[in-house]
Amino acid sequence: MANTPQPASTSNYQSLKESGLPFITANRLGMVCEINEAFEAVFGWAPRDLIGESLSQILPEAHKMSHQLAFSRFQLPPTQSAILGHPLRLATRCADGTELISEHFIIAEERSGEWFFAATLKPLAQPT
């Protein structure tokens, strides 16, 4: 019988990445590190447009200020966030400037003392 310690959560970087959903990661500075092909296909962003750029590129205008402040506060100890680890219904800005409602599932992992963020963005039925 298994006695080895197991992760408490079903959601980690690898499981999000392997989900097949649009997927994006960012480093501790909030700069995009990686997007997958599903992300490119759904939101129209190419890696060259986003990699190394601020995450706020994919946020609607009304969300940017709040994102920057909450992101900065998260990095001050004690780290706390109301948005991690559960599905969130949010708008995402596409490369063509339109916005798509999608289900975001965001996680943060500490790697060698630095925070690293990953998220899946599942497109939802758009409000009519």
Partner: peptide
């Protein structure tokens, strides 16, 4: 980031409710 984080923590400590909007009065 650290400066902004401190600023937001400070604003959270104020007892008044605060809200910033854009020129169209949409919440930011």
């Amino acid at each position: 980031w650290s400066t902004l984080g401190r600023l937001e923590s400070a604003l959270a400590a104020i007892s008044d409710a605060l809200c910033i909007t854009n020129d169209e009065h949409l919440v930011l």
